[in-house]
Nucleic acid binder design. Structure first.
Lengths: 352, 352
DNA sequence: TTGTATGCGTTATCAA
DNA sequence: TTGATAACGCATACAA
């Protein structure tokens, strides 16, 4: 049953003959000019109802689909915007991106998505590829990237929006939330519960302003409480369950042993919880653990994860709206700061 | 701190003037013809080393990126292939797609991804959009879709590969695994442990051959064991933790109460586990639960999830290779059936 | 090895 | 309201 099935293709599939009907084909068949067909498709009001119906019939009959390249060439705009996200492997970006896409689709704009693998150079490559596809605008995650990338975008005057973080800035449009204060908020909640030995499992902070801002935020809260933020034990880890487990194991070696673990991400936090439990520790009895993002898993895990809720869908929608308004050019654009909130569940309690 | 930041754009960003250098610009600056520049970029061997270096220097200096539309128009091929997946919201497709993309990238081919939301009509729309972008080939998930979709692809003679499922077929290239026998395998493992009251939480089977094949496979195993497959209680649920919880709650009402729950998906299974535990039941002591896919979470959850391991990365890579070879046209293509295996962890045991 | 010239499918300008 | 026609950026057949 299992095996390979070598098969000879019936048609020579490598022949690039697309049999794709063109504007010309439609025009000829309808007995009108290509210009008229184009108008029917792009600005129907300019055309008599009778010819419009005639043409649309032929379009349907032939299964005509406009050739994108030709259209982009002639109109110098593609009705396409691009997004480069760090990874598709992770649910974090999925929800926000989905909303982003839906909002664009409502405006008749297509979204092209590429991923960088958290690598600056690959991000740049992907941006180039998107730009060469004629994107009208771009969405990027966070602000940390080489100057050259911004220079490139500016030289090409590609409008862009930065999301998943927020900075108050006159020149760059941010649509996101303040990772630093959000992290500070949840750290405060931990401190208020009476914890004094706090450690952090952070994301990889290199080229990732969201991750580093969250570390800074936690340090802010510690400093504010008279605990030394600088001395807080921090382990950086790739966002995955296994890495969360490893990082947790490492931090449990520290003496004095931390009574609370603040994680830069829900996935890391869940990994940490599973490790702690597998070591026979009670969460939050022996150790409190917090997350960041409020993904679906945060609610399902045992104990429920205390975390920072991020309004991903609203953010995606707002980013799309902002970018569209920049592209539109009729109104001034506005950066938007979204609010996060700490969601209290069971994984955080007072130290015993 | 929180709020809106209305800002006046310095440059009129809506002006579509891209300042994008063209072949012509590069040619003029280098003092050669556009043909030569084109050759440097597409077939460097045809050009003297000295002029090649000269031209490449200018390309670098100007930050020239070829215009995709122009290229597609002139060459009638786009070096782009498309993929339509049911959802980006789910980790299931992420890993396979990532491998698919990487393999294509190695061949200099770009991947365009769209999602259908498990909706036939939206899938068709997305396919049209991709086709109008001039994709050279297409990757689709599973085989269940309206005839019209296939007709469209055939009329346009767009080569495609079907993945995440396998059928032995001379006309269509499948690269995937047999969902039915895979499901049968894990159901057998459950039956072998002595379970007689078995229920299933399946994915939504409408327009989803993977989901329905898995149901059929489980029924096959029951029939084989002299238990009536047709009478097995089945609840269909969208692939999410909450839905898994709900479905589990529903099935726990059944009398006789099932001693084993076979889930069509790991996410559903994890949802079911959390619900069972929240009801004070022991897993697998009071109820055994199995999954499908072997995502990262399956190993991290408590108890570890017995599930079907699917070689997602290998599948993605193989699908890309197959599609490229179809596009290439030099060799006959082959469908590929990949093997799955049952991964035993703690969530399955004999009934008490 | 290089240059010239043509056409790809579409939009947009101008006339009719 | 419609039709001719000139771009748009690039690849390529052909000529030099």
């Amino acid at each position: 049953m299992l095996g390979f099935y070598p098969i000879t293709a019936v048609r020579p599939l490598h022949v690039k003959n697309r049999f794709a009907p063109t504007l010309h084909d439609v025009a000829r068949r309808a007995g009108v000019s290509t210009a008229t067909v184009s108008r029917v498709l792009n600005d129907p009001a300019l055309v008599t109802e009778s010819t419009r119906e005639l043409v649309l019939g032929i379009v349907e009959e032939l299964g005509y689909t406009p050739h994108f390249g030709g259209r982009a060439l002639a109109s110098n705009r593609s009705n396409t915007i691009g997004a480069v996200i760090p990874t598709m492997d992770n649910a974090i970006f999925a929800r926000g991106l989905q909303a982003f896409q839906e909002t664009l689709a409502d405006a008749g704009v297509t979204l092209l998505v590429a991923s960088s693998g958290y690598d600056d150079e690959r991000e740049f490559e992907q941006i180039r590829a998107l730009v060469s596809r004629g994107i009208d605008g771009l969405m990027l995650i966070g602000a940390a990237r080489p100057k050259e990338t911004y220079t490139f975008l500016d030289r090409r005057s590609i409008p862009y929006v930065l999301t998943w973080n927020f900075r108050s800035n006159r020149d760059i449009c941010f649509v996101g939330f303040n990772n630093r204060t959000a992290a500070k908020d949840i750290a405060r909640a931990v401190i208020e519960r009476g914890h004094r030995h706090i450690a952090m499992i952070a994301g990889i902070t290199a080229s990732n302003d969201r991750a580093s801002d969250r570390v800074d935020g936690v340090r802010d809260a510690l400093d504010e409480a008279g605990l030394s933020g600088r001395d807080m034990p921090v382990v950086e880890a790739v966002y995955s369950l296994v890495e969360g487990r490893h990082a947790c194991a490492t931090l449990l070696e520290r003496r004095p042993r931390p009574t609370a673990l603040i994680c830069g991400n829900d996935v890391l936090a869940v990994g940490a919880i599973t490790l702690a439990k597998s070591r026979g520790m009670r969460v939050p009895g022996d150790i409190s653990i917090t997350g960041f993002d409020d993904i679906e898993l945060a609610e399902a895990v045992e104990p429920g994860l205390t975390t920072v809720h991020v309004p991903h869908r609203r953010m995606g929608k707002a980013a799309a709206t902002a970018l569209l308004s920049i592209l539109d050019g009729t109104t001034d654009w506005q950066g938007i700061e979204l609010e996060t909130r700490v969601v209290m569940r069971e994984s955080l309690a007072a130290p015993s």
